[in-house]
Design a protein around this nucleic acid. Structure first.
Length: 427
RNA sequence: GGGGGGUUUCCCGAGCGGUCAAAGGGGCCAGACUGUAAAUCUGGUGGCAAUGCCUUCGAAGGUUCGAAUCCUUCACCCCCCA
């Protein structure tokens, strides 16, 4: 039995446990079943979910059985933990779509064909959906002292803030999650729940419930929230969350996020998110220390994580796009290659005839491509040396674009500044 | 109910009859430096057929050769007294 607890600990994935003394020891003795829940609040998981998912993955690799729980029922209610205000209920349609999006993602990170430690995927709607209200109040609600519920952080913080408020519905959330834990105990002998540090209250609620209902001792462990060196939430871009769905966050953007990581944060992320062994992480970190400008650590992290999330093809696409985005002039590429590389980049279509004769005014091209809000701005950018065609600076605002400026058969790559790209397609 | 103050360009905030497309700061954009980092520095920041023209200072009217600036009405916000 591998010592999964020690592993998690050095990786910095343990924030708090319900039993620091016995839990590590018990985990060394025999295989456990461990679960983490994921509410379908969107049609894709994001990087924030990756922490718990990686923990499940590590448990499985160490010989334990992971259960990924999709919150078909809890997602209908809305977890108040870590949220400063009441949330809108999701419509059944949206919820179902979210569930459909999230479920296959959960499957990607775990091994469902590993004998008795094969991962299990459950949906708590399967047992909660059948529960009657009266039955639930009698069987479950009766075991929750309201004063204990009121003491939970998630509840208290909302009650202290008069403007935020807390509905009875969200207040009840912890009962559902608590019951989930008991249900998984009954059906899978699951005795350990993991989650983010904001899940502490919900996890302990389940432990209490199991003690009252079944007389069984359950355990919980939380991981830290994903924060950068300034204590700000990580995994966000200007465009919003870093999604795992390639349609929502392209492999290139995903890769770039990690490449751009601050030196201070990269070591932590290597430990959190990669399967690299300790020695290898130490070696990478040492190499990075010696020559930070090479950003060995960021490159390694980006490659490992992109491969894990988007597969080898996704990684290859991201790397290829990176070469072009930060490389020299663009030439001798086909439309297909350009389209693949500049997948993220907005493109506009213009009639091919615009290139005939004198050609298309560069100022107009920049404005048409959306890189400048007005022609005035386009002229300004050119004057400042910030305009590029096919990665080659254009200094003359009178410059006319012709067919000779095409990068592929029909595509032209425009850029302003360091990395604002747009494509013009001439059809 | 009475009295006073306010609403300015993406945000904050000056301006109080012409020299105002409107100070200053923030943000944002571009450049330099650099490690696709942080910090720093420089320039820019309403639109256009551009030594000019058009639109903009809560809304609508009015005074004036001329208004963000004065007057009237309306809307919203804030403060003080009741």
């Amino acid at each position: 039995m591998q010592d999964v607890f020690a592993e998690l600990q050095w990786r910095g994935l343990i924030h708090q446990t319900t039993d620091d003394e016995y839990l590590p020891r018990l985990l060394r003795e025999k295989p456990w079943t461990v679960y983490a829940g994921f509410d379908p609040t969107a049609d894709s998981l994001h990087v924030g979910h990756l922490m718990a998912l990686m923990i499940l993955r590590r448990f499985q690799r160490a010989g334990h059985r992971p259960i990924a729980l999709a919150g078909g029922a809890t997602g209908m209610i809305g977890d108040p933990s870590g949220k400063s205000e009441e949330r809108k209920l999701l419509s059944p349609d949206v919820l179902q779509a979210n569930l459909d999006g999230v479920t296959p993602q959960l499957q990607k990170f775990l091994d469902f064909d590993a004998g008795d430690r094969s991962a299990v995927l459950v949906n708590n709607y399967d047992w909660m959906g059948r529960f009657g209200y009266l039955e639930f109040l009698r069987d479950v609600g009766k075991h929750f002292p309201v004063n204990v519920m009121l003491a939970k952080d998630s509840v208290r913080s909302r009650l202290e803030n008069a403007e935020a408020g807390l509905s009875y519905t969200e207040f009840s959330y912890m009962l559902l999650q608590a019951y989930d834990f008991v249900n998984l105990l009954d059906n899978y002998d699951c005795r350990l729940q993991v989650g983010g540090s904001d899940q502490w209250g919900n996890i302990t609620a389940g432990i209490d419930l199991a003690r009252r209902l079944r007389g069984v001792q359950l355990y919980g462990a939380t991981c830290p929230l994903l924060e950068n060196r300034f204590g700000q939430k990580m995994g966000k871009t200007e465009a919003g969350a870093l999604w795992l769905d390639p349609e929502k966050t392209s492999p290139y953007r995903f890769y770039q996020y990690w490449i751009n990581l601050d030196d201070e944060d990269v070591g932590k992320c290597l430990r959190f998110f990669t399967d690299l062994a300790r020695e290898e992480i130490d070696a990478v970190s040492a190499a990075h220390q010696a020559a930070p400008e090479k950003r060995t650590a960021q490159r390694r992290l980006a490659a490992e994580l992109t491969r894990l999330v988007h597969g080898p093809e996704g990684l290859q696409a991201a790397e290829q796009a990176t070469d072009v985005f930060f490389g020299a002039e663009i030439h001798e590429l086909s439309d297909d290659q350009l389209t693949a590389i500049f997948d993220d980049v907005p493109s506009r279509e213009l009639p091919r005839s615009r290139l005939d004769g004198a050609g298309l005014d560069i100022v107009e091209a920049l404005a048409a491509a959306g890189l400048a809000k007005s022609k005035g701005e386009a002229r300004r950018i050119i004057g400042q040396g910030g305009a590029y065609i096919n990665n080659r600076r254009v200094e003359n605002p009178q410059r006319q674009l012709t067919a000779a400026d095409l990068a592929g058969q029909s595509v032209m790559v425009l850029r302003t500044g360091k990395k604002n790209y747009a494509l013009l397609r001439f059809l």
